[in-house]
Structure formats: structure tokens, C-alpha cells
Design a protein around this nucleic acid. Structure first.
Lengths: 194, 194
DNA sequence: CGCGGCATTGAGGTGCATCAAAGACAGTGG
DNA sequence: CCACTGTCTTTGATGCACCTCAATGCCGCG
């Protein structure tokens, strides 16, 4: 899929399961007047499809060119029913997504704009490390607007927060969408984890 | 357990699974300086314990006198491993909690104070109906402060929002913690679902 | 070169937080 | 029975963090 294309939309009939093999995807929900909240960003290695309902609860859009592996609903349902180990694996994934969702609730409900951006960068860096990449230089496949919609802020506030982090020497912006973390410790402190 | 007591605290070693048979419980996360976010409210019939990690990611406190059923970690782990049907059931629960968490993210990131309170009341009413209770009169076992920490607001804003809903004739407050919904349709409209 | 989308920066406005105070209860003890 | 205390709720006045509006710069692309 090309960047900008949707895998599926909120309300579409659901069922299929997707595995991302290449690229980045955003999951979002939208209010009637256009206000949007990005539930999460997914990258290669992640799975989509804990629908359990007849229709998708959110929209999935490609941020970059994306390569996905689609498992049609029915064979997958039968296959997973026959393999308890797979279901256990899915339960594990769902559980860790739930934990991430709870962190995000704390972020959206109680953190300041800088804490939100710092937390976001810390999480991205952690995911980069989990993919055997450097945690110092993080790429941002999404736009400032996407980040804003993920952190419950506006584009302007996100941009200003980047500038503040940059001016205080915690990060460096090689490119608009590549962050170099200069002090992981200070970034973590700013993120206010607990 | 008496009201106010904790089932477990953020950071405690986890593992056990709980089923609530009577009463209401809050799940919350706290930042170092005391800022708190209530992840969710649970009531009789709900389960707690998708830990999957060595320590609890949040604190569980009794809002009312509570009766719980505790399943110790180890026998439960063995039992669920032996019963794929149970694991599938747990996956279903985790999935619907995930969907609820995503709704809450939209609420926290993008909704106004009135929309938040209206959405909250709509959800409570829905849960009351699911428990074969009237959806018109909803009881609030939690304080205004708890609601504030759940909706990402302050006590004062929650109180003002209640007043506004009351003055506009959408709800009625029999008691401080019992809401009568006068117009479910208008409440749903105010909640801004999609 | 000119266009359109994205990012940054500045100036000003606003929704909710903060601060302050008073009312409503329940519990407690005299 | 009633003063006393602490907790919760409500309401008002004020302030601020972030939003809104506006302008400019940057870059990729036809």
C-alpha cells in the first residue's frame, strides 16, 4: 500500500487480521466534527485485528509505503481455535496493548505538553531498541499533526514542545522526522514516569 | 474489604486474579507528584488480573464495601493453560477492555468537559442495563474527585458540568450520587459519539 | 518557477485549572 | 440532643497552559 492509503475504516465490517511486514501505520478514531485521536502507531512486526465486533472500531492508515500480510477472517478464526498456543500468544499481545493504553490514558489525562512529547519519544526509542535499532536516533514516520492527534494537543503545541526540548539540549533534530536523543536520562525525567 | 481499602498497589508483585462479586472498585495510576488517573471503574461481575508482568501496573481500591473472589496465581495459570475455552474467554474480555480504553483515549484527548461527563454517564447507564438494572437511574459509587481523575478534569469542573447538565434538563440529581437521566437521547448527543 | 503541504513562530483568546470560601452531611464525643 | 470536626460538594473570582488565528519559511514536485 502507498502512504496515505487506508487498510480499513471505522465502521467497516471487520474480521480480517493483518500483520505488518514493512512500514508504519496509524490507528485512529474520529468525532463527527473532525476531531481525531490517534490510538496508536504500529510498525513492522506488529499485528492488527482484535476486532471481536462486527465492525472496526477505528481507522487504519498507512503513514509510509506499507507491506502487510492479510489473514482472511474465516480461515484465521478456525486456525486460532485449533491452536491454543496461538490464542495464548494473542492474549499476551492484547494484554500488553492494554497496558500501553493505560499509560496513554495517564498521559492524556494528566500530563503537560512537554511530558507528553517526552513520554512519546521515550516509548518510540524503546520500540526502536526492541527492533535491534539504535535508541539514540529515532525516526518519526508520522507528521506533527499525527503526533498532535496522538498526544491530545495541536500541531503548534507539538512544534513548540520540540523546540523547547531542542533548546534545552535534550534532543537534536537532524531532519524534521529524525530525532537524536542527547540525554536519555533527562528525557525520561521530563516524561515523568511515576 | 471495607471501602477505601486497596486490593493491591502499583508496583506490588502481581499474579493473582480477582473476580468482583459485590461492590465497586477503581483502577488507577499515579504520577510522582500525586497526579492521578483512574483507568477504569469495575463493578460486580468484572474481573481484574491481566497482569502478564511481574508487578501490577496500577492500584485497585474499593470504592464501596467489596466482596472479591481471589484466584491465586499459580493454580489459576495451570488451570487456564489446561482450558483453552477459558483463555479464549479471557481474550474476549481483554479485547473489549481494549476497545473501552480506546474510547477513553478519544475522550481524554479530544472531548470537552461536558462531552466527557455525558460520555461517562452514557457508559454507566449502559453497564447498568447490562446488569439488568434500569438505565434511567444510575448510581455513582465514586466521589466527584474520582470522576475527575477518570475524566482528566478537576473536581470543580466535574461539579460545574453536573450543574450544567442539570440546569439544561438532561439529568436530575436525586442524591449526590444517584443520577436520573431525563433525556437519554440528548445525553447521547452531548456525549458526541462519532 | 510556482504550487501545495508541512513546520515553525508570534500574538492574542479561552476553557479549564487554581485559589478561595461557604454550604451540606455524616460521624463522634460530650 | 447538639456542638464539633472532617470530608465532600458547590459556587465564585482569577490565572495560565494550551488553543486559535495569522504569517512566514521550507521543501518536494509537476
Amino acid at each position: 500500500l502507498a502512504a496515505g492509503q487506508a487498510l480499513f475504516c471505522e465502521g467497516d465490517t471487520a474480521g480480517d487480521v493483518f500483520g505488518i511486514t514493512q512500514g508504519s501505520v496509524s490507528l485512529s478514531k474520529t468525532l463527527g466534527d473532525g476531531r481525531r485521536q490517534i490510538i496508536g502507531f504500529l510498525r513492522d512486526g506488529d499485528f492488527i485485528g482484535f476486532a471481536q465486533s462486527a465492525t472496526w472500531a477505528c481507522t487504519a492508515e498507512a503513514l509510509t509505503p506499507v507491506e502487510v500480510c492479510r489473514f482472511p477472517a474465516e480461515p484465521f478464526g478456525r486456525f486460532s481455535a485449533a491452536h491454543p498456543a496461538l490464542e495464548r500468544r494473542l492474549l499476551g499481545i492484547a494484554t500488553s496493548e492494554l497496558a500501553a493504553a493505560q499509560d496513554q490514558m495517564l498521559l492524556l489525562g494528566r500530563k503537560t505538553s512537554i511530558e507528553r512529547l517526552a513520554s512519546f519519544l521515550v516509548r518510540l526509542a524503546g520500540r526502536a531498541v526492541a527492533h535491534a535499532q539504535s535508541g539514540d536516533s529515532v525516526s518519526l514516520p508520522m507528521t506533527r499533526g499525527d503526533i498532535a492527534d496522538h498526544l491530545g494537543l495541536t500541531v503548534e503545541t507539538v512544534s513548540r514542545s520540540f523546540t523547547m526540548l531542542r533548546k534545552s539540549g535534550v534532543i537534536e533534530l537532524a531532519d524534521t522526522n529524525r530525532v537524536r536523543i542527547l540525554s536519555a536520562a533527562r528525557l525520561r525525567a521530563l516524561a515523568g514516569k511515576e
